[in-house]
Design a binder for these strands. Structure first.
Length: 852
RNA sequence: GCCCGGGUGGCGGAAUGGCAGACGCAACGGACUUAAAAUCCGUUUCCCGUAGGGAGUGGGGGUUCGAGUCCCCCCCCGGGCACCA
């Protein structure tokens, strides 16, 4: 055995071995417990892997390797989310076909991922841009369409001129594109929409059964945004028109002193009086010209105009004015509200500005008002808005409803019952969730299997003609009309029905990047099946995904979309589970070391000089402060895994990523930290290389160290607490490394414990112990409780909770024994002299506390 | 504003309500070496000191024999949502 730990040689050797022997190929449907462990597959960008990627991948890899040794059949695949904008933009700039860029990037990524020694079953690799894959993405779209879940709508969309495409709401941040930070404007366009709203309730309900971080579930709940209330019809005075409003506070109907229609509401035109028409038109034009960003960013000041008409409040017959204001959104509820300024902050603000009466109808609950620092008298006079609990006042009317004296919840129920009885309204539920804008004006995405026929009908491409492959293009520029570059591919575009001769034009939109990632976890189960998306038997064997690890940035979108598709596939019998991902874990972001000067200005890392006094600016020698910040090209603080692997090896890289801290925490990268785990591996290597592997029996103390290490590493690996598992292995090496020999029993167990974490060195050490073949399927060691026991324990005797004396006592001492041993101790007795012992608490194995 | 996370040495972080700071980094001292690298040993929360003592887990209160851990209030940092009636 080499004296030196030569990681480069070892890692090359074992990666070659695993590949040649297909060590990690997972058989389907075998008689073993299964576990499906999935990483969020990456978008293979041109810049390659950064240290954030391997964090989650290492975590899942450790877990998989551990599970294999525990006797599980493990599904652990990897693939590529390879459609997307960057490759297309590169094509626009250079003329390189996106497929070529994608192929090259995938190669780079694959090489980098392989160099980390992950135990993927590469025979299951899939890529979303592969026609054999997107055939089924297109097939799923057809299923959605057949079930009425895909429809075309003329909708105001987020048009980004710079990118030449439409973006989903989620891809627009503060009125600019998420990618590239370009301005975005609203523009009506014919688009494919997916009716995710039809699944809102199920998407909400089924969250409860998932083992996901509570925060992520909460974010999805908020995104779905269910609210319960009522729809109420208000008659427009002197007209047959009715305005339907949605409210969560039907109890406050008596406080409604005006109504508001959204500027886009279809009744605005017909009810506006001639005298008000001019100002209403002006206001509508003003509202239309504003982007979503301006509308939301300027939300400090409410705007609106009176339309001249009034409506009748159904509970008391009173006339109330109808206003037009953009604080009411056309896209939520009915696009119209009843305004209750006394008990709604937004209405209150609006009423104050326009001098509309505020009518208090709830007497605030006393303790709640006190707690919030609200003066009840102010509320009653309409000077302050109250949105909390209380009792209804001024709430009976000519129409027969009387809810005076009731609490909010009961008043709601009573009002709804009355409205339903009078046929004036009904209980209603609303969701914030909107239908999913599913079109993109791009080349590099899945083409829709759709033909628009000249008679106006929409025809779907038959299954046997799938996949529908995008045409070869020379020019990848957007068409400029808002259509994708596909609009330039005349031959591909034009279609003639072979039977009838009717002409048609293919859909020029493509699907968004989310499409391919919505179902890839299913394809891994049966990646080469050309008859079905997934074989039902294999699907039943492997699903659901038992552990899904990825970044929190996908908390809502990817995970919500994938759940939606999964439920549709469940409904048509393709999958057997209601939910795709039983357990979800988010790995925390890894930050880079960054520097700022005293004014707080950021200094790129290549302009920093480290001195014994701390970091200084390389040019000005100004003192700098070190702090962790998101890795970015501009800060020059990006750590490249290749460099780390080259210098310390993949095993050190893996170990360090896990040793930094809890998987889910945000952690700063530290190169000296890598050196620490590297030293540990070298020490472990020397423990084998420089010592005799002896056949002798272990001492009691050694047994205790060994078995407590087995216990801790097993438990912590199971619960993904990898940092503390590694600490325990370090303790093991610190103890056994100091001995003249290494007993074989301890050596073998240790190598097995290390194997999931640092697999290359573990394979090499395993071989050095005389074993042939891989350690990957060796049985995981089991600890024995009897070796953890000790004869003597050191306990602490406290008086009044203050430490007084440490003493060694038999570990098996009962509480009573402990008490008497403590009281009999001369030092304790001395400390207690003249005091009356009132109570003694004894915690076995820990301490005795004497209360005087 | 609302909803989630989170505040522990110089740093990353450990701690079933039971001796706070495991493990690692950095720093300092020492050994080995002609020297360096590598390695090994020791010290390292802060304050006062000779033994020894005092303070200490963002701040303030509380429960408890005992609180980093449980409860209430506040402050700060990170993330998400944001006129959703």
């Amino acid at each position: 055995m080499e004296r030196q730990y030569n990681f480069a040689v070892i890692e090359r050797k074992w990666q070659g071995y695993w590949e040649a022997n297909k060590t990690f190929k997972s058989p389907d449907c075998v008689d073993k417990p299964k576990v499906y462990v999935l990483d969020m597959f990456p978008y293979p960008s041109g810049s390659g892997l950064h240290v954030g990627h391997p964090e989650g991948y290492t975590a899942t890899d450790i877990y998989c390797r551990y599970k294999r040794m525990k006797g599980f059949n493990v599904l652990h695949p990897m693939g590529w989310d390879a459609f997307g904008l960057p490759a297309e933009q590169y094509a626009v700039d250079t003329g390189t076909h996106p497929a070529q860029t994608t192929r090259k990037n995938i190669e780079t990524f694959k090489g980098q991922i392989k160099s980390l020694g992950f135990s993927y079953d590469w025979d299951r690799e899939v890529g979303t841009t592969d026609p054999a894959y997107f055939k089924w993405t297109q097939w799923i779209f057809k299923q959605l369409h057949d079930r009425g879940l895909a429809y075309i709508d003329e909708v105001p969309v987020n048009w980004c001129p710079a990118l030449g495409t439409v973006l989903a709401n989620e891809e627009v941040i503060d009125g600019r594109s998420e990618r590239g930070n370009h301005p975005v404007e609203r523009r009506p366009m014919r688009q494919w929409m997916l009716k995710i709203t039809a699944y809102a309730e199920r998407l909400l309900e089924d969250l409860d059964g998932l083992e996901w971080p509570e925060g992520i579930k909460e974010m999805q709940r908020n995104w779905i945004g269910k609210s319960v209330g009522a729809e109420v019809d208000f008659r427009v005075s002197g007209s047959e028109e009715k305005i339907r409003v949605y409210t969560t506070r039907p109890d406050t109907l008596f406080g409604a002193t005006y109504m508001v229609l959204s500027p886009e509401h279809k009744l605005v035109d017909s009810i506006t009086t001639p005298g008000c028409r001019e100002s209403v038109e002006a206001y509508r034009r003003h509202a239309a010209s504003m982007s979503d960003m301006e509308r939301t960013e300027l939300n400090t000041e409410k705007t609106g105009v009176f339309c001249g008409a009034t409506a009748v409040n159904p509970v008391n017959g009173q006339d109330i004015p109808i206003w037009i204001a953009d604080y009411v959104l056309i896209s939520y509820g009915t696009g119209a509200i009843m305004a209750v300024p006394s008990h709604d902050e937004r209405d209150f603000e609006f009423a104050k500005k326009f001098g509309i009466p505020v009518r208090c109808i709830i007497e605030p609950e006393e303790t709640e008002a006190e707690k919030g620092g609200v003066d009840t008298a102010d509320v009653l006079e309409g000077k302050v808005c109250w949105t909390g609990n209380g009792r209804m006042i001024n709430s009976s009317g000519s129409q027969g409803l009387d809810i005076n004296g009731l609490e909010v919840a009961e008043a709601k129920a009573r009002t709804i019952a009355w409205l339903e009885n009078q046929k004036l309204g009904k209980a209603a539920v609303n969701y914030k969730l909107r239908d999913w804008l599913f079109s993109r004006q791009r080349y590099w995405g899945e083409p829709f299997p759709v033909i628009h026929m000249e008679d106006g009908s929409v025809r779907l491409v038959p299954d046997e003609e799938l996949p529908l492959i995008p045409p070869e293009l020379e020019n990848f520029h957007p068409s400029g009309t808002g259509e994708s570059p596909l609009a330039n591919a005349r031959e591909w575009l034009e279609y003639t029905d072979p039977k009838t001769g009717m002409k048609g034009r293919r859909e020029t939109n493509t699907m968004p990047q989310w499409a391919g990632s919505c179902w890839y976890y299913l394809r891994f189960i049966d990646p080469c099946n050309d008859k079905a998306l997934v074989d039902p038997e294999k699907e039943r064997y492997w699903m659901p995904v038992d552990l899904y690890v990825g970044g929190a940035e996908h908390a809502v979108l990817h995970l919500l979309y994938a759940r939606f598709w999964h439920k549709v596939l469940y409904d048509i019998g393709v999958v057997s589970t209601k939910e795709p991902f039983s357990r979800l874990v988010n790995q925390g972001m890894i930050l880079g070391l960054s520097y700022k000067d005293t004014r707080g200005a950021l200094v790129p890392s290549d302009q920093v000089r480290i001195t014994p006094e701390g970091p200084v600016h390389a040019e000005t020698s100004e003192r700098l402060e070190e702090f962790p910040a998101k890795m970015s090209k501009s800060l020059k603080n990006v750590v490249n895994p290749d460099d780390v692997i080259k210098e310390y090896g993949a095993d050190s890289m893996r170990l360090y990523e896990m040793f930094m801290g809890p998987l889910e925490a945000v952690k700063p990268w530290s190169t000296s930290g890598v050196e620490g785990v590297y030293r540990f591996l070298k020490k472990a290597w020397r423990m084998f290389a420089e010592k005799d592997i002896s056949a002798r029996a272990l001492t009691r103390e050694e047994l205790r160290t060994l078995h407590s290490t087995i216990k801790k590493v097993s438990e912590d690996t199971e619960s993904l607490d990898f940092n503390t598992a590694i600490s325990q292995m370090m303790i093991f090496v610190n103890e056994f490394g100091g001995k003249p020999d290494l007993p074989l029993e301890a050596a073998e167990a240790f190598v097995k414990l290390l194997a999931p974490y640092a697999p290359h060195i573990a394979e090499e050490l395993w071989e050095s112990l005389g074993h042939s073949g891989s350690i990957a399927y060796e049985q995981w060691p089991q600890h024995d409780e009897q070796f953890l026991a000790v004869d003597q324990v050191e306990i602490l005797v406290q008086i009044q909770g203050k430490p007084c004396k440490k003493m060694n006592i038999p570990a098996a001492s009962s509480q009573d024994d402990m008490k008497s041993l403590a009281l009999d101790d001369p030092d304790v007795a001395k400390a207690l002299a003249g005091k009356e012992v009132r109570k003694i608490i004894a915690v076995p194995g820990r301490l005795v506390n004497i209360v005087v």
